[in-house]
Simulated scan of single mutants.
Amino acid sequence: MIEIKVSEEISGVRLDQFLGTLEDLEISRSYASKLIKEDRIKLNGGSCKASAKVQAGDILLIDMPEPVSLDVVAEDIPLDIVYEDSDFLIVNKPKGMVVHPAAGHYQGTLVNAIMNHCGDELSTINGVMRPGIVHRIDKNTTGLLVVCKNDKSHRSLAEQLKVHSITRRYAAIVCGNIKEDTGTVDAPLGRSKNDRKKQAIDEVNGRDAVTHYKVLERFGDYTLVECVLETGRTHQIRVHMASIGHPVLGDDVYGPKKCPFKLEGQCLHAKVLGFTHPTTGKYVEFDSEYPEYFKKLLEKLRK
């Protein structure tokens, strides 16, 4: 059992937020919420909610569960590593690879591959199924991901994601000819009420979501765009572009069911990733080339 006394300067902060900032505890805000729901955290001797505001002098008793052994096995899967140091590595994820294990995908994921590459050198904040993973991209989206090797870098990157200071530029080929050169989609997203596997625009209960787009090249029936994320919601670019009548080409979830090209999912590539280095404090930025399928499709469209 861990006992923590709330200090004067923390007074008035949400309980889950407060717990997520404690370096000695080293848990994320979402994991703190999970412990609260499981009644493993007592506030002044009683049960509490994640939204409770802690006050100076409050006493927290935390019953941390025993570490769960990781059933996910390391696999010798080739990785396209763009950069690596003692804090993190930047990986160029291929199409068709799931980022972290989940029901139906316990093997062949990015996590299986990085466990083989890094061994025990991965952050633990997001739990045993997602070591090192701060953010993710969809199975059929290609491109750059940062993987954290320690909890210090993980907390730094998670905070940068939270305040939207990370640079994330995606390249997408979308259906239709976008007339304007630039635009912004500002529409909150939430889980679809009709299909729980899909996301949808939800003005009432959705979370803020903002995507900026810029036309790079036009091909008549298709357009190459750069999408810059201000927020990073699940399927954000795919839902936002579909909402303005320009779904991502090959997206059989939010776009047309039939595609004139032989594609494996959406034409979406996480091209640029930039952030403040957790140790040096300097801004670093990484770029990746279009994958082969993307290049070949662009050649066809240009002809």
Rank of each mutant, 00 (worst) to 15 (best):
residue 218 R to Y: 05
residue 106 Y to F: 14
residue 145 L to F: 07
residue 188 P to D: 03
residue 10 I to K: 15
residue 206 G to L: 02
residue 31 Y to F: 15
residue 191 R to L: 03
residue 113 A to F: 06
residue 75 E to N: 12
residue 2 I to R: 14
residue 28 S to K: 11
residue 153 S to M: 03
residue 167 T to G: 00
residue 208 D to T: 05
residue 88 F to Y: 11
residue 183 G to Q: 06
residue 96 G to I: 09
residue 56 A to W: 12
residue 248 V to K: 02
residue 81 I to C: 06
residue 120 D to N: 13
residue 15 L to Y: 09
residue 62 I to E: 07
residue 278 P to G: 12
residue 261 F to L: 12
residue 241 M to K: 09
residue 155 R to C: 00
residue 123 S to N: 10
residue 18 F to V: 06
residue 102 A to V: 02
residue 99 V to L: 05
residue 221 D to T: 01
residue 175 C to Y: 09
residue 288 S to N: 06
residue 19 L to F: 08
residue 15 L to A: 08
residue 198 K to T: 08
residue 9 E to F: 12
residue 252 D to K: 15
residue 40 R to T: 13
residue 153 S to A: 15
residue 193 K to Y: 09
residue 153 S to C: 08
residue 148 C to H: 00
residue 103 A to I: 08
residue 87 D to G: 03
residue 255 G to Y: 13
residue 116 N to H: 15
residue 243 S to V: 11
residue 96 G to D: 02
residue 165 S to I: 00
residue 35 L to H: 10
residue 201 I to Y: 12
residue 63 D to H: 14
residue 279 T to P: 02
residue 172 A to K: 09
residue 258 K to I: 12
residue 207 R to C: 00
residue 65 P to I: 09
residue 204 V to I: 11
residue 220 G to D: 04
residue 303 K to I: 02
residue 39 D to H: 15
residue 10 I to E: 15
residue 143 G to T: 03
residue 138 D to V: 02
residue 234 T to Q: 05
residue 7 S to Q: 15
residue 241 M to P: 09
residue 64 M to V: 14
residue 61 L to P: 00
residue 73 V to A: 10
residue 151 D to W: 11
residue 230 E to A: 02
residue 239 V to Y: 04
residue 158 A to V: 00
residue 183 G to N: 05
residue 187 A to C: 05
residue 117 H to N: 05
residue 8 E to M: 10
residue 169 R to M: 11
residue 24 D to R: 14
residue 291 P to F: 10
residue 36 I to Y: 12
residue 224 L to H: 12
residue 201 I to G: 04
residue 297 L to C: 04
residue 160 Q to P: 03
residue 118 C to G: 01
residue 235 H to R: 03
residue 181 D to K: 13
residue 4 I to A: 09
residue 100 H to V: 01
residue 171 A to T: 01
